[in-house]
Design a binder for these strands. Sequence first.
RNA 1: GCCGGAGUAGCUCAGUUGGUCAGAGCAGGCGAUUUGUAAUCGUCAGGUCAGGGGUUCGACUCCCCUCUCCGGCUCCA
Length: 671
Amino acid sequence: MSTIVVKHEDRTAELESGATAIQALKALEAVRGQIVAARVDGDEWDLDRPVPDGATIDPIYADTEDGRAILRHSVAHLMAQAVTDLFPGAKWAIGPPVENGFYYDFDVETPFTPDDLERIEARMSELMKERQAFVREELSKDEALELFADQPYKREVIERVAAGGAEEDAVAATTADAEVRGGEPVFTVYRNMRSEDDEAWVDLCRGPHIPSSDRVPAFKLLRTAGAYWRGREDQPMLQRIYGTAWESKKALDAHLEMLEEARKRDHRKLGRELELVHFPEELGSGLAIFLPKGALVRQQMEDWIRAEVIARGYEPVYTPHVAREDLWRISGHLENYGELMFPGMELDDGSAYRMKPMNCPFHILAYKSRTRSYRDLPLRLAELGTVYRFEKSGVVNGMLRARGFTQDDSHIFCRADQIVDEVVGCIEFARDLYQAFGLGEPSRVAVSTRPEGKSVGTDEQWERAEDALKRACEASGYDYVVDEGEGAFYGPKIDIHARDAIGREWQLTTIQVDFTLPDRFEMSYIGDDGEPHQPFMVHRALFGSIERFFAVMLESFNGAFPTWLAPLQVAVVPVAADFVDYGLEVAAALEERGIRVHVDDSDDTLGNKIRKAKTSKTPYALVVGSDEAEARTVAVNPYAGDRRRAVPLDDFVDEIATEVADRRTAVPAAP
RNA sequence: GCCGGAGUAGCUCAGUUGGUCAGAGCAGGCGAUUUGUAAUCGUCAGGUCAGGGGUUCGACUCCCCUCUCCGGCUCCA
């Protein structure tokens, strides 16, 4: 009997040849919790799969992200098996784990209903009780094709993987891959076995999986959705079921609880409750009204950016909301995005106008208002420009995806040698902005490179610009990823994303290099050589869309804005009508320092007045009664933090004035 | 745009198999109460049940169309 040696950390063990991963882990005393799979020389490995001689083995625990992904992938298989049982003839596409869960796509006669989800869940629970083993098996391409003879989507995946095309289709690659041995691709399938010779189901899959179906501690199916096969609009629409699975009932419940809490932070809900914004149906889809309180918050944002822009050497401009259609023809927007622009306005004299979807052509016209010299560069033109884009009906989402929104837009015209500095300046500007508004680290910074197919500019231009953007990211200290082929047709870009309450990522900041507009508009400047040259152009919007940023911020703060941003900063609450006069004095002292304050002189009970201040998330409630009036103090009840009594009025005024002047975004510790 | 779900007072919701079922709480008006830290009491007013067709003796309820919203997919200059 031959033996093998396996390693874990600084331990080794000698085992019989053919020993499985779990046997190895036990021999290595490397089992300290709920294990779903192993990592063998870096590769994820089924627990009952034999390990090679000399392997280094680590456990993958259920309560780690890798472990959960394996668990979820296995639950996706069980769901597909349940669907196959309940909906004969269903074709399965792919079912990978995703962040916080998994999904599986099916081609079925009729879409799933919410009731179907319950039936599927119930069936899955039965399958789990059957203690089905997940058994790995290797097949040749032909064997795999035969096994999935009646599963066209599986066959397509097999063909594409065999042709080496799976890399272009990252999602398919997560559900199947093929190792090439002796020039032939080897596919793996996982059979769900009720017993040694009783097969329940089989799926094409790279694995690994949990050993057995009863090792699913907690799962739940969440929702159904349509999804295009291979994510392409020209492909059939499949029916997707999303679910989630966790290492324990407790972890599942915590996740569901978190989702429930997140739904309460929805900016549309908070915006209505706090009377910040309004989306009346009469107005039109994707259009928002900022109510007075929302407008106050927005003004803080606008005031901040207006002041910063001037401090950083930009020059403000103002431009109209419409322009002749020809302008959009020259810019190329009509050609490239015509369907996403609001329809034209035909005038009696035969001319046509369009609402602006971007501000750049206007800023270019500003540039071209006179002959430019290299001494003018970089020229940074800035505007809070409101644009209108006819977003497709299914994508409109409150203020996160609107049809009318305002960009803190700027276009920087510069020489080639100035691009890196300018982009670095933009990123630093963005950093300061996230800092000021308390959003913390962005969820994602991405450099997007040249797209396949239509794009303008030379390879050398793209390479130089992409390099400039990456260097700027590095200089700024942001960790960034490269999104291959995700650039705009006219140039590469840096995007900064943040998450909303339910975890969706939204692009806020965008910084883009443009090769085409200077050319299309025949822009030039006179160089120090006396010859005309073409300037480079950087588009940049830091909030991105004021509306979107506002929404992300609103959700991030759960409606409780930092004092400097809060629409109402102080609610003065007299304990009885007799103390309204002193309350007014308190308010006057605060107003003198620019604090937004309101005296609650209603005849509500004290408790209710406090409650109104709390539910409106006003940063401070100041309770005033006889004690306070006599001693010229206030009782401070902050929205978050500890209550304090007998705070001298002058001290509180200084405190809050400083807090606002410093634009503090964190709740200060109680002194 | 595609797939699914939803739309009853300003808000959150209840309305059994089509037959006084158009209701409640909060918010709002008015009156009483004058309060020491998250809901005082009473009273009044509010809805073409998203809109438009249809089926029926009768439609919030069933069918069709449109609009809007929600969750996905696709898209996002």
